[in-house]
Design a protein around this nucleic acid. Sequence first.
DNA 1: ACAGAAACGACATCCATTTTCATTAGGGGA
DNA 2: TCCCCTAATGAAAATGGATGTCGTTTCTGT
Lengths: 138, 138
Amino acid sequence: MSETRGTTPLGARRTRQRLDILQHLSAAPDFISAQGLHARLAQTGTLVGLSTVYRALRDLERAEQVDVIRSEASGERLYRRRSTSEHQHYVICRRCGRSEAVDTDIVERWAAHLDQLTGFSNVTHTLELSGECMDCHL
Amino acid sequence: MSETRGTTPLGARRTRQRLDILQHLSAAPDFISAQGLHARLAQTGTLVGLSTVYRALRDLERAEQVDVIRSEASGERLYRRRSTSEHQHYVICRRCGRSEAVDTDIVERWAAHLDQLTGFSNVTHTLELSGECMDCHL
DNA sequence: ACAGAAACGACATCCATTTTCATTAGGGGA
DNA sequence: TCCCCTAATGAAAATGGATGTCGTTTCTGT
Ligand SMILES: [Mn+2]
Ligand SMILES: [Mn+2]
Ligand SMILES: [Zn+2]
Ligand SMILES: [Zn+2]
């Protein structure tokens, strides 16, 4: 009882749609929106409802399986499958969307002291970096 | 010719609405949304169209007169008049919205090297901090 | 196989922000 | 000061990402 079987990770059922979504998300090299992912799935003949894509991404976010940013350009939330168990920060190319993980140890260490520095408790941070990748810069 | 008179800052006309908006925004101690500001103006009998508030805030943002964050809770963009000429980062209380400027020199210096560290050009950053202020923490 | 619950998906709805467009009113120049 | 051009305004409609609804489908443990 209260046994966590490898077959049922976190109360999440394993449906054809969830698998397809996770697979296509993992295959995407960069951040992608719910709608973009839905379009990709459709292209390859994988029929998944848009609502389902939104829900699956929301659940993946809760399970901390993805990093999320907000596109300044389109206003969409963009998702990327995490490579490590820890959250990461990325530089995203403003032009083509290419993303690259950045070493933010310095910032993380600084952030860890914020509770003392600010008088606020349970301080969390959001850090997004954008620039122009070498291919797009001129 | 091509003379920049003090009377015409940046092609922006000085209307009653713009002045009221800037005044009320400056009076607000914390971050406030377009709709919140619009409501505040209405309360004090200052009639300004909601579109006008949105437009004025957009222009203030372009002129770098305000710092902007995105409320995770309401999804709104929140604005705060800048006290200095440089951009700032803040800790915002998740519960009551109180905001406090934070010294981010360390991060700023780190960010200045990102072009070399990442291979991206013109790297800009977004940093948002949220926590619970002393009044709200239990 | 069965039953209860979770997931689907087409569609409706929400809601912040933008756009439209007719009207108003700044402000530089004469 | 008066004119004119044009930016600014605002009511209303449109946009668009995201979430809610609800009847149907599909898991999964027993
Ligand atoms: Mn971090
Ligand atoms: Mn900064
Ligand atoms: Zn690029
Ligand atoms: Zn508080």
